[in-house]
Amino acid sequence: MRLRSFLMLLSISVAVILLAVIWFFPSNDDFRVENPFWNGTKDMEALTPASPLSNLSDLPSSPVGSTLILIPYVNFTQAELEELQTFVTQGGTLVLADDFGFGNQILEYLGLQARFAGQALLDPLFNYKNKWFPKISHLTTSPITNNTESLILNHATCLTDVESDTVLASSSTFSFLDLNANETHDKNEPTGPLPVISRQSLGSSGQLLLIADTSIFINSMSTMGSNYAFIQNIVATTTSRLLIDQSHLPQSNLGQTKNLLADVRGFFSLPAGTIGLVVAALTITLIPIFGKKKISNERGE
């Protein structure tokens, strides 16, 4: 084998192997539905009829009965905010789970008073393992908190400026909001019960469920306490489609490459793409025959 051919073959082999590794290696990006590790949401996708949403422009045009779970770790564009507003005001339910992300951008755009505090909610006594995992046992009766005894949060915050009658869950009396991030309670820091889940109405039929923690949906947390029952209640209140937004999650290079490959695969799975691929494959394989014929014709054979 000539060196040139060997190098070409080697390069192609390495490229194919790398692409295969990228394709088959599971994603480890936070909150991704394809991530089976502790920080992914694959379990939720498997246990509920949830569909990932890669773009907010793909939101259903008739959103009544649909629910969108949104974890906003990426800034929103004006168009996206408009899409969300349309979704909610036309009857969709937006489950906005945020702690230190861009949730307030949505709340501000929608004209709501409620805000995510943006500082850590710590509970030194009512917790799972340590104060960063507050245990929420103050739950008001509602379809969302049905069969739910206690929720366990993970590095959560709390909600501010919410009306008491909209609050569905609050932290314990012993919890506090760590304003200065020194992990201890200081005199000026608000103490519990602090609201962590609130249901807000928008327009005549729009609903927002604000959750002051993003991690309640991840694989390692979804089965803790009554978190699973809580998620099931969100599913149960959805009569149409349940969507999980993936477009506002931070993405690693691995994730980007996987997406690119998925797009390519998606293109080739379309009728036009498949036909194109068949035509291209035929052209490449038949080129030598056409080439020989042409040479023969030129030689006058």
Binding site: D99, P124, K129, F133, T214, I218
Partner: peptide
């Protein structure tokens, strides 16, 4: 080129610290 820090931790490996 890692993404922004996501403030959460694996509960299975979290330190047990009763107060």
């Amino acid at each position: 080129a890692q993404h922004i820090y996501i403030p959460h931790q694996n509960p299975a490996t979290a330190e047990d610290a009763s107060d």
